[in-house]
């Protein structure tokens, strides 16, 4: 073992466009969790969006341009961390495929992808975090967002950290791993189908009896919160990072902003 004090890892936070615009508290909660875990967190101003709206609409040229920007903006960091399975999945799993055949960028994208992590996975799988120092009195249920679950294997990590929150009682809902119907542009292109899917989700949330709904992706959270509120259901909706960071006393999603 070296006597040298290990330098704290330098983490670039990929805020995600939805957090930037709709829920800054998720960004601050992420920063707090990372800093508490001993990271130096920076937020490069040159980031915008991961490019999924273009990518999933078949617009490859714009996606590639956005991907290049993102890779360049984060090249200097030890790690790139995003509080979203969907955006992290895009950066980690899809960026390298975008540059197939372009040797220079393929290498850069692969090196970049290797350093990208979704927040929960980073805390638990990379930093080895086992518990958080937070209090949340009440019952919660957790929705597994699709990209995080199926592209990045995020399921146990958030649950494990949540189990260490004092006062928190987990009430798993039925079909927690089934899509909420958000799907990015899907929810506005096919609103009727999206609505049917989210109705199924909110009825499972309701049946769980939990007071608070948590998930790791703001898109899904806004979708489910929007439906719960339209249905007049009194379930509070939050990003899982907010609760883990002990910031669960701020107004819930759709209940106001700081």
């Amino acid at each position: 073992m070296s006597d040298e004090i290990r330098k704290p890892p330098r983490v670039g936070l990929f805020v995600t466009c939805l957090v930037d615009l709709f829920r800054p508290s998720v960004g601050f909660a992420s920063v707090k969790l990372l800093e508490d875990a001993g990271c130096n967190v920076e937020v490069p101003m040159a980031q915008t969006c991961c490019g999924q709206p273009a990518y999933n609409s078949g617009d490859r040229d714009d996606t590639v341009a956005i991907a290049r920007n993102t890779i360049e903006a984060f090249e200097e960091f030890d790690y790139v961390v995003a509080p979203s399975g969907s955006c992290a999945g895009m950066l980690k799993k899809h960026y390298p495929a975008l540059f197939k055949g372009d040797a220079h960028w393929e290498t850069r994208a692969a090196a970049f992808a290797a350093r990208v992590h979704e927040l929960m996975s980073f805390l638990v799988d990379v930093l080895g975090m086992e518990k958080v120092d937070a209090v949340h009195e009440g019952t919660v249920t957790y929705h597994d967002s699709c990209a995080g679950l199926r592209e990045l294997g995020i399921a146990g990590q958030p649950r494990r950290l949540l189990s260490s929150v004092s006062g928190l009682e987990m009430r798993e809902m039925r079909d927690a791993d089934v899509c909420c119907g958000f799907g990015g542009t899907f929810c506005v292109k096919y609103p009727d189908i999206s609505n049917r899917i989210v109705e199924e989700k909110t009825s499972n949330i309701k049946a769980s009896g939990a007071e608070t709904l948590l998930a790791g992706d703001l898109g899904c959270l806004m979708n489910m919160a929007g439906k719960l509120q339209r249905q007049g259901m009194d379930v509070k909706v939050r990003h899982v990072a907010e609760v883990l960071a002990g910031m669960g006393d701020t107004p819930a999603i759709g209940k106001g902003n700081r």
Partner: peptide
């Protein structure tokens, strides 16, 4: 705290509310 209707976002607000954004972005606050 949220929209029940927003111009150009009808696909969203037809079936669900949209949380109102804060007055300043995360980046500005950061």
């Amino acid at each position: 705290p949220r929209f029940r209707y927003l111009p150009l976002a009808g696909g969203w607000t037809r079936n669900r509310d949209l949380p109102a954004p804060p007055s300043r972005t995360f980046m500005q606050q950061w």
